[in-house]
Design a protein around this nucleic acid. Structure first.
Lengths: 234, 234
DNA sequence: CTGCTTTCGCTACGAGTCGTAGCGTAACTG
DNA sequence: CAGTTACGCTACGACTCGTAGCGAAAGCAG
């Protein structure tokens, strides 16, 4: 939840979750959008703030990102930021989440090709300075703040599991993978594959600091799909 | 390099890089050790500072770790900290690096058993609050600071690649893996396996926030060793 | 148009941290 | 002993944080 401490939370570009969560003290009931009574929040300000956040992230990194800086850059008062986001962490989650929406499952006709394509997309995303500056810092904050970790998962991580689901479904439709029998086992399998792909690519790029080449992608995909390299006979 | 801006760097518990591992302040050893002339640095202070760092990390997390706090806890002046470590980042690298030394390659008689054992050890290490608070935060800082990333790699990440090398060598001795032919290909294979294991376990524990169970470890190891789950025939 | 409500920009503030400087004292060497 | 270096302590300017208070602006209901 980006903000929602002031009297009445108004849904804006940054407050899509307002509907999902009550949060409005004066609001009558669950149902429809809370009818705004006073001056509505500027949607343009939301966009300007999120843009300014991404730009500052790219230029100065996580450490150089201050609320005052973002406010100045977005041509907005610092108090306006705090009216919408309780802290830097929540602001950056919203600013970065949209970047991950560009990932798509291409369905190229084979499981191997699909995996390699998604890995390449993810690698490109992780090569961007905004993403680099924000992602690990958010994850780090999330290890202490459970609420934040939940928000990160909901806004950034979990939505990408659809890629694994779609890829698996496509491979099953092609006959490359056996159809699911136990749904809970399928869920665990999706989790483990997701953690493996996301974790490995992140570690390669952000920790080891090595680039993701087509050759590396090919090797990694082989490790996933096939047996261990040079296993047993050879 | 932990410190070394003052006139002469004296090797202490926190300054092993001064020359391989002299460690003993009064021991001239073989090489070129700089002969200390004035009052030697207190090795006890180093230990107290590193202990205080780990304790504060465990209690207050990365955000709650301030130089003043550590100094107070270690019963040391704040200036003493800055005389040895230029910033929080370098201090934490040294404080955390030793925790990773406890990881060992057991050689249990099969590649699968060895992998599972190492994964379990790594999972235990990541479950500790000091490690959780520090690791991702350091990685995040490392994405902006190349020097720091290098230090993290040298002190924390790379030393653990020995586990992969030892495990591979043991498996080759057993005949489970084919012997190396191209040494550079072997190096890349070690890198990719390391990134995969470390990245996946980190993502599972620190991002997804799910525990590492024996069942999960078994599944993950199967994913590495065998073909994709429910691949092709079944 | 007129009030009502809420947001907006602005300024100011106390609290906390950072990293450094200066000083007198302690410890060790030759 | 003198020389050298580390130590503890205090103080400091610069910065960021998050909040409070104010008058003005922007929609909405009558």
């Amino acid at each position: 939840m980006p903000a929602a401490q002031p009297p009445v939370s108004q849904p804006t570009a940054a407050n899509p979750s307002a509907a999902a969560l009550p949060a409005a003290p004066g609001a009558p009931a669950e149902a429809v959008t809370v009818r705004a009574k006073g001056r509505p929040r500027s949607a343009a300000a939301d966009l300007a703030i999120l843009d300014a956040t991404r730009e500052t992230l790219a230029e100065l990194g996580w450490g150089g990102l201050t609320m005052g800086h973002v406010a100045t850059r977005a041509k907005v008062a610092k108090t306006t930021l705090y009216r919408r986001w309780p802290s830097k962490n929540e602001l950056v989650v919203d600013a970065v989440a949209s970047l991950f929406d560009e990932l798509v499952m291409p369905d190229l006709g084979s499981l191997r090709a699909d995996i390699e394509a998604v890995v390449a997309q993810f690698a490109d995303l992780l090569a961007r300075p905004e993403t680099q500056a924000a992602l690990l810092a958010l994850f780090a904050e999330g290890t202490r703040d459970r609420q934040l970790r939940r928000r990160i998962r909901e806004a950034i991580v979990d939505p990408q599991k659809r890629l694994v689901r779609q890829g698996r479904a496509a491979a099953q439709a092609r006959g490359e993978l056996a159809p699911d029998t136990d749904p809970s086992a399928a869920g665990e399998e999706i989790d483990i594959i997701f953690d493996t792909i996301a974790g490995t690519v992140e570690h390669r790029v952000l920790v080891s600091g090595e680039p993701i080449t087509p050759e590396w992608t090919r090797r990694f995909t082989s490790l996933l799909l096939g047996p261990f390299p040079s296993l047993a006979a050879d």
